[in-house]
Simulated scan of single mutants.
Amino acid sequence: MSKTYSSAERAYLEVKERILGGVLPGGELVSENEIAGELGMSRTPVREAFLRLETEGWMRLYPKRGALVVPVPPNEAEDVAHARYVVETAAVRALAVSDRAGLMAELRASLQRQRALAEVPDFDEFAVVDADFHRAYVVAAGNPLLTGFYDSLRERQRRMNSAALRHGGIDTGRIIEQHQRLADLIEAGDPDRFASGLAAHLTQVHGVALRGL
Rank of each mutant, 00 (worst) to 15 (best):
I175Q: 07
S152A: 15
R166N: 09
I176Y: 00
R159E: 00
S162K: 04
G148K: 06
Q157A: 02
I175G: 04
Q178E: 14
D151W: 09
H179Y: 02
G173S: 14
T147G: 09
L153R: 02
R156P: 06
L145G: 10
E155M: 03
A164H: 04
I175Y: 05
G169F: 10
G173N: 13
G173L: 02
R158V: 10
D171V: 10
I175E: 01
R156H: 02
D171W: 14
N161P: 10
E155P: 02
E155L: 13
P144G: 08
R154Q: 02
I176H: 08
L165G: 01
R159F: 01
A164V: 03
R159D: 09
L153M: 07
R158S: 02
E177L: 11
P144Y: 15
I175C: 07
A163D: 08
R174H: 05
I176V: 08
R154G: 04
G148N: 13
T172R: 11
H179L: 06
T172G: 07
S152C: 15
L153H: 05
R166E: 01
T172S: 13
R159P: 00
Q178S: 11
G148W: 08
Y150M: 10
L153G: 04
F149A: 10
L145M: 15
H179S: 13
R174M: 08
R174D: 07
F149Y: 15
D171A: 12
E155W: 10
P144D: 12
H179T: 01
N161H: 08
R166Y: 13
A164I: 06
I175F: 04
L165A: 00
L165Q: 02
Y150T: 05
R159H: 03
T147C: 03
R174Q: 06
G173F: 11
H167F: 07
L146V: 10
R154I: 06
G168V: 15
G169E: 13
D151V: 11
M160P: 08
H167E: 08
